[in-house]
Design a protein around this nucleic acid. Structure first.
Lengths: 226, 226
DNA sequence: TACTATACAACTGTCGACAGACCTGGCGGT
DNA sequence: ACCGCCAGGTCTGTCGACAGTTGTATAGTA
């Protein structure tokens, strides 16, 4: 008997998880847009299951910040305002920098190659629809998060940025801006490769600023006067 | 009619939330210990509800890292090993430092007084059981998190550290060590009050090291060689 | 005695149903 | 014409039930 089937049985799959995955996909590929209402019965019919696993999956996504629950009114795909984007990004800055440092310290040739490969694909994807660019972008960052070797950091960043990527799908940058955004991943590769003298803080700040205009740069340190 | 009742109605209460609160309390006060199995039917009987809200509450806690789900086997209160404690703390270091800086920048007299008050109560609680000390400890840190003004940071830290506090309830430090742990909150108050020259990183590192022995100090920066 | 196979009990994952809250549109009053 | 009330339909929150799986104790075998 192949080992895989035994290993697979160690983590039995449940409908709840499958549906949580499907819903996450749908949100991160723009099939469900911020503000959309998520009707439990409709989703249950759509996937031929009862409402229980749908509800549970939705609540899982709620906890991850992808949907918001208005009690007795329903679940809605999370919709961020400018202030929320700013707050998430200012926190993301700190975490991404940490992930970058850890990833550089632990970088293997495999990881580096993967990052380079994704950066290459992004370069060729400048003209593609926002969905594909966002997918590549997400995949790139996930690679760094995973490369940090700290699953808690990985999970935290995934949860924190998920609504950002959903939000990003709504914006349609001009081709030129899109190219700049995608190109701005190169310095991250270089940093991980050890080719940059700049600090991780600097590198990630430039990257995020380019994408999301102006988060307060290290607001905490500056205001605090350290 | 008092405004409160109107506001309260904006957020209707559900059994799921109530039970999630009860369960969280139970874990953070040590009534449920790491490794304990959480039997849905038993909990349902205990609180006179059906299993549905119990399940949903448990899954909410799972997402927050307080319990772990073993599919078709049940939910268990999360139980950390040394490596996990270390990983959480190395991440916590980064986030708590950020919270400290933000809190100092935005500190109001109310917040400062509250922190001082909690530090005072901790001083008097040196001989008390671990549960009370942990409650004060948690309350103290929550005050700082909230004082950062960034709800995402607050939520992230709450989720990340919850299993730590649950874990801490298991250990019974000697009275002298307990006093040192509780006393180590003073520098945090001083930092927020602007009375310290040291960086937030330093202050929080000392605090966490004292409690949790030796997390790799800024492992990412050192290994990265920045 | 150690080990395997079997039967039983307990529990989770999922389902369908119901009551009550929420929203919408139409009606009557001003 | 505008506002507020009421009725109908829709949807969520909760419930009880069932099937299949997991864990356990028992019986059987070498």
């Amino acid at each position: 008997m192949p080992i895989e089937s035994l290993v697979a049985d160690l983590k039995p799959t449940t409908l709840r998880e499958d549906i949580a995955t499907l819903l996450t996909e749908a949100i991160l590929t723009g099939k469900l847009k911020p503000g959309d209402r998520l009707n439990e019965s409709a989703l249950a019919r759509q996937w031929q299951v009862s409402r229980a696993p749908i509800r549970e999956a939705l609540q899982q996504l709620e906890e991850r910040g992808l949907v918001v629950n208005r009690p007795r009114r329903g679940m809605f795909v999370v919709s961020l305002d400018e202030e929320e984007v700013q707050k998430i990004n200012s926190l993301r800055l700190v975490l991404e920098a940490e992930a970058l440092r850890l990833c550089r310290a632990r970088a293997t040739p495999q990881i580096l190659r993967r990052l380079q490969q994704l950066a290459d694909r992004m370069e060729r994807a400048s003209g593609s629809p926002a969905v594909e660019a966002t997918q590549l972008d997400l995949e790139f960052h996930r690679t760094i998060w995973a490369g940090s070797g700290n699953e808690y950091l990985e999970r935290t960043l995934a949860g924190l940025t998920a609504p950002l990527f959903a939000y990003a799908l709504l914006t349609k940058p001009k081709a030129e801006k899109m190219r700049m955004i995608l190109d701005s991943h190169r310095p991250l590769v270089d940093y991980v490769a050890g080719k940059l003298k700049r600090s991780a803080d600097d590198v990630i700040f430039d990257h995020i600023r380019l994408r999301w205009s102006e988060p307060d740069r290290f607001a905490s340190r500056r205001l605090g006067g350290e």
